[in-house]
Nucleic acid binder design. Structure first.
Ligand SMILES: [Mn+2]
Ligand SMILES: [Mn+2]
Ligand SMILES: [Zn+2]
Ligand SMILES: [Zn+2]
Lengths: 136, 136
DNA sequence: TATCACATTAGAATTGTTCTTGTCAAGATA
DNA sequence: TATCTTGACAAGAACAATTCTAATGTGATA
């Protein structure tokens, strides 16, 4: 996320304890947690935390570009505090999502773009993670 | 889908009128419809068709590899009767999904695979479709 | 202090998807 | 033909994920 509390406050947002807890959980988190994951983790310290607050906060962070929403998991939204463009490995067994450092140079000929104005790209490599390989 | 009614029957399935309607709608469809899209289209000819039947049929087709489920739309599942591996253009404005003919040779060094057994890959190019460009 | 702008909470509402149950029809079997 | 078996169907309930709403709280500012 590369977002210090100071930067956060400077961007005109209030830094509440609940938000701090959500930020702290997200900061450097490489597990691509779902909203539920965030909720479960943060609730430990804030038992009154509402699920809606988590969604609201994630939505707000997404709008401000502090978090990216991933689509690789068909069951729930997953969030990535690492906003630098990068690709992912996705386990079709347990839905684990792992960052990929490899970069690819993907360019499309204008003729192939169907008139789209391309803004970015994302590669999902699918397969079985070590854990799931063992289980089969 | 490349799935004739004959092949379908041969694979041990009953070919009911409802299923035929769903198949007919999917056959050659390049719009990557959601379950709801399928339901709305098929309901015109079968007003008593249940949403659950659409889900059941799509699920069954997915299990048999006759249809692929896409994850690019965060709001709903989208289905692709074109099961040949290919990539997509996705409009972030209207969620339109367009097939990409371009092929890419994507290989990962073993060191980058985090122990995953890679089964496939899928690229999503995101951007704005011509319609949505005009609207902004 | 009074006021404002947001955040927060809790729960309701909505949406998307899956499950359950009773019913039915086609094909197989006797 | 009569019966059996299998699986599809319809309808709605149930469930899960997400969004919305309304009431309340809190910090910043005038
Ligand atoms: Mn990531
Ligand atoms: Mn496609
Ligand atoms: Zn796994
Ligand atoms: Zn568009």
């Amino acid at each position: 996320m590369a977002l210090s509390q100071e930067q956060y406050r400077e961007s005109g947002l209030k830094l509440t304890p609940q938000r701090m807890a959500i930020l702290a959980y997200l900061e450097g988190n490489i597990l691509h947690p779902s909203a539920e994951d965030v909720f479960r983790a943060v609730r430990r310290r804030f038992p009154t935390m509402s699920f809606a607050t988590v969604y609201n906060t994630l939505e707000m962070l997404k709008k401000r570009g502090k978090v990216v929403e991933l689509t690789g998991d068909p069951d729930k939204k997953r969030f990535d505090p690492n906003i630098r463009p990068h690709h992912h490995l996705i386990c079709t067994g347990c839905r684990k999502i792992v960052d990929l450092k490899t970069e690819f140079n993907l360019t499309l000929k204008a003729a192939d773009q169907a008139g789209f104005q391309i803004m970015g790209n994302h590669i999902e490599f699918t397969g079985l993670c070590p854990d799931c390989q063992r289980k089969r």
